[in-house]
Design a protein around this nucleic acid. Structure first.
Length: 175
DNA sequence: AGGAAGATCTACT
DNA sequence: GTAGATCTTCCTA
């Protein structure tokens, strides 16, 4: 189980370290497990692609406690983020793709993985720490190479590589 | 109340 | 490769 301290660091670091971890979704006592294979980091006002740029609920949520779940809708899809950094900083990590471990649905994209794991707005503003239906657990002894790239689907990116994925993993989203 | 934009996905050519 | 579907969120009036 991840601690609050894990999420209390820079979004870029958390995004990188979330790779390879296992996300567990409990639905009526049944567990769906998947390995995180792709993430992106988002920042506050200085980030042209971030929703924290505008005022509103999303910006406020990004400034909430680290480990807060942020669910955001775009083009008929739910996207899930975890708030990172110290409270008040407005940072988050987007889950972009996971590898199914004990189920079959496609989850190689931010909208697809929320569908596969049945994540929707009801998780918005809940915390990933000590959550009964959704949790992230450590996966030691994993060995993989991390690739960095620019973010996907954003109109204007930062001059920094903020997307991270596991090299050669088949479930990383396409582009 | 209305409108436009968007961190997407699918299907068709 | 391109277009269209479709809905949440924020901004304007």
């Amino acid at each position: 189980m991840m601690s609050k301290k894990f999420f209390e660091r820079d979004a870029k670091i958390v995004a990188r370290e979330l790779l390879g971890k296992i996300i567990v979704r409990k639905i009526n006592g049944v567990e769906k497990r998947a390995k995180i294979v792709e993430t992106e980091a988002y920042y506050g006002r200085e980030d042209p692609a971030s929703r924290a740029r505008q005022n509103g609920d999303l910006r406020e949520t990004m400034k909430d406690e680290p480990g807060t779940i942020l669910v955001y809708g775009v083009h008929n899809n739910w996207l899930i983020n975890f708030v990172t950094g110290k409270k008040g900083k407005a940072e988050a990590v987007l889950l972009r793709a996971v590898e199914p471990l004990n189920f079959e649905e496609k989850s190689s994209g931010p909208g697809l993985l929320t569908k596969a794991l049945q994540i929707d707005k009801k998780f918005h503003k809940q915390s990933i720490i000590n959550n009964k239906e959704l949790m992230i657990i450590d996966n030691p002894n994993e060995n993989f190479e991390i690739v960095e790239s620019f973010r996907i689907g954003v109109k204007e990116d930062l001059p920094q590589k903020l997307r991270f994925y596991i090299k050669d993993n088949k479930h990383v989203s396409k582009k």
